[in-house]
Design a protein around this nucleic acid. Structure first.
Lengths: 193, 193, 193, 193
DNA sequence: TATGAATGAGTGTTCATTCAT
DNA sequence: CATGAATGAACACTCATTCAT
C-alpha cells in the first residue's frame, strides 16, 4: 500500500473514532470523509462496505487498548493500581467507540485480539487480588463491562474534555467500591420487577 | 381527551421508552407505532413532530423517577440508603431513555420538573451526609451523572434483564466507592491528554 | 334535511370557496372543517368523497354567478355594460374558486347550469354587439376564459381586498380592449415557439 | 461543477418550470426527477431543500424574462410595442411559474434581479408613454400584475399550446385597453362589498 | 487512485378517508 | 347526527453505496 493511502486509512479510522464518540452512535459516511478531508469514494476504497469500516475501527481501538494494558503489566504495576491504570488508559484510547458501534463482541471475530485480551484480563485480576484490595468474587465482567460503560460518552453536547473528566472521576469512585468488606453498606438485595 | 386516546398515548410512551433502551438511540417511528399496535398516523396525532414525542418521553420518565425519589424521602430512608434506593429506582423507571434522546437537559424546558429534581437532590445529599458515609466534597453531579450513566443500556443485543442486572451491580460498586477515607487507594491524579 | 344540517352544509360551502381563493388551490379538509367550526366527520357526512365537495362548490358558485348574470339581463342593461356588469359580479361571487378546483367544466356534469350559462352568454354577446362596441369576431370564449382568469387570486399572501381591487381594474382594461378598430395598435402576429 | 452535473441542474429547472405550469402548483419532487430522467437523490443533491429548488426556479425564470425585456429595449422597440413585446416574451419564458410558487416576490431576495427589473419597467413605461398610447396614470403594477396574471395557466388539463394561445390573445386585448380616452366606456365605479 | 455525482431504499411527515364513541 | 381518533397511502427527505469522470 502506498504511504499516502496508508496515511488516509489511518486518518479515516481516527476520524471515525472521534465522531463516534461525539455523536454517540454511528456517524454518517459523508461526515467521516468530510472531516478526514477526503472524498466519499476514497472512504469506500479503503472500507468497501459497512462492516469493513466498523470492524477496522474496533480492531484499531482494541489494539491500542490492549497494548496499553500490556504495557501496564510490563511496567510491573501491582495490585489495584494495575487495573486502575489499564482502565483509565482504555478510556483515553476511545474504548467507548467500540461499544457504540459493535456492542457485544462476537468471539469468532478477532480471535487474536480475544486471546490477548483474555490473557490480559486474567493477569490484571490476579494482580488486583494480590494486595487483598479486590474481593475474590470479582469477575472479569466487572472489569470489562465497567470499561465499556465508563468509556461511553455521557451525553451528546458535552465538551469531550468535560466528558472525559467526568468519566475518569466516576471510574475512580467505581474502583474504590470494589474493595472487600463493604459490610457497612446495605446493598440492594432483591431485583425489582 | 377520550379514554381510548389517553390509553393509546400512554402505550406509545411506554413503547418508546422500551425501544429507546433496546436500540440505544432513537427508534424509528414505525417501530414505535408497530409495537404499540397502532398506525403511524395515530402516533403523529399524539405527537405531531419529532420534538413532541421526545419531550413527552423525557417528561414521562422524569416524572416517574422524581416521584420515586420523593417516595424514598417520604418513606424516611436515611443516609446512603436514601440515595441508593433512589438511584436503583431511577434505573428501573427508564432514566436511561432520557439521556439517550435528550442528553443534556435544557433548564428552560420542564422548569417544574427541574425545581422538584433540585429539591430532591439536595435532600438526598443532606441525608447521605448525615451518617458520615458520604464525603463532603461530593456534588449533585456525582449523583445525577452517575444515574445517567448507569441508566443507559450497556450494549445493544444484551437481554434487557441481563442489562439491568449488570447496571444494578455496577451501581452498587459505584456507591460503595463514595465513602470518605479512601486514602488507601491511589487515585489517578493528573488528567492525561 | 334538518335546518341545522342545512346551515352546516351552506357554511361548509362558503368556507370552502373562501379558502380556495385564499390558498390558491385545494385547501385541506381539516382546514375547511376547522374554519367552519365543525368536525371533520360532519364534513364527510355532507360530502362523502372528494368529488362530492368539489362538485357542490362548483354548483354553489355557478348558481350564484349565473343568477347574477340573469339579473343583469333582466335589469335591461345594454351593450357592453351588460357584459361588464356580469363579469364584475362573477368576480365578486367567487368564480375563481370554480377554476381553482375544477378547471375545465365537463359538459356532462351540471347540464342544467350549462344550458342556463349558454343562454346567458349568447344574450350578453348579442347585447354587447348591439351598440357596436364589440367586434363581430368576438367569441363566447373571450368572455368565459377572461372571467376565469380575472376571477383567480393573483397571488397568495395578497390581502383579499387588494386582490379583488386589482382584478376589477385589470378586467376594466381588458374590456376596454375589446372594442373594434384597434387598427392603430400593432398586434402580435405569429405565435412564438 | 462538472459539465454533466450542470446539464442535470439545467434540466431539472426546465422540467420544474414546465411541470409547475402544467399542474398549476408545486409538482411532487418525484415527478420532477422522473421527467428529468434522474433519481430523486440527484434532485436533492442540486437542491437540498424545498426552498432551494423554488428559489432556483424563480431566478431561472426571472433571469430569462428580464433578459428578454432588456433585449427588447436594446432592439429599440418604441412606444407600446416595447411593452407588448416584453409581455408576450415573458409568457413564453414561463413567468407564470414564478407566480405559482412564489407569489409575492420578497424584495430582500434577489436584490440584483430586483434592480434590473425596476430599471426595465421604468424604461418600458417611459417608452410606452412616448407615443401617447399609454395614459399617464398607468403604473408599474399595471404591467407587473398583468404579466403575472396572463402568465399563469388558465386551467389544468388545457393543452399547453392552447393555454398559451389564449393567454396571448387575452394579453393583446388587455394592452389594447390601456389606451387613453376610453371615455366612451362606462367604467365600474364603486367597489362592491 | 481519488473524487464527488447519481442512485434508490428507508425513514419522516401529511392528509384524505373511515369508524368507534 | 356530530365528533374527532385511527388508518395508511402518498409525498418529503436522508444517506449508504455505486459508478462515471
Amino acid at each position: 500500500m502506498r504511504s499516502d493511502a496508508l496515511r488516509n486509512r489511518e486518518r479515516l479510522l481516527d476520524v471515525a473514532v472521534a465522531l463516534i464518540l461525539e455523536v454517540g452512535g454511528e456517524p454518517t459516511r459523508d461526515a467521516i470523509a468530510d472531516r478526514a478531508g477526503l472524498g466519499i469514494g476514497t472512504l469506500y476504497r479503503h472500507f468497501p462496505d459497512r462492516q469493513s469500516l466498523l470492524h477496522a475501527v474496533v480492531r484499531h481501538v482494541l489494539e491500542r487498548t490492549i497494548a496499553a494494558g500490556e504495557a501496564v503489566v510490563a511496567a510491573r504495576a501491582e495490585g489495584m493500581d494495575a487495573i486502575r491504570q489499564y482502565m483509565h488508559a482504555a478510556l483515553e484510547h476511545g474504548i467507548g467507540a467500540v461499544n457504540m458501534i459493535h456492542p457485544l463482541l462476537d468471539d469468532t471475530d478477532w480471535p487474536d485480539l480475544r486471546a490477548r485480551a483474555d490473557a490480559l484480563m486474567s493477569e490484571l485480576l490476579t494482580r488486583g487480588r494480590s494486595d487483598h484490595r479486590l474481593p475474590d468474587e470479582l469477575e472479569v465482567g466487572d472489569i470489562v463491562f465497567a470499561t465499556i460503560r465508563f468509556g461511553r460518552p455521557l451525553a451528546i453536547g458535552l465538551a469531550p474534555a468535560d466528558d472525559r473528566a467526568i468519566a475518569h472521576r466516576q471510574l475512580d469512585h467505581y474502583l474504590d467500591g470494589l474493595r472487600p468488606n463493604t459490610t457497612a453498606t446495605q446493598r440492594r438485595e432483591q431485583p425489582p420487577t
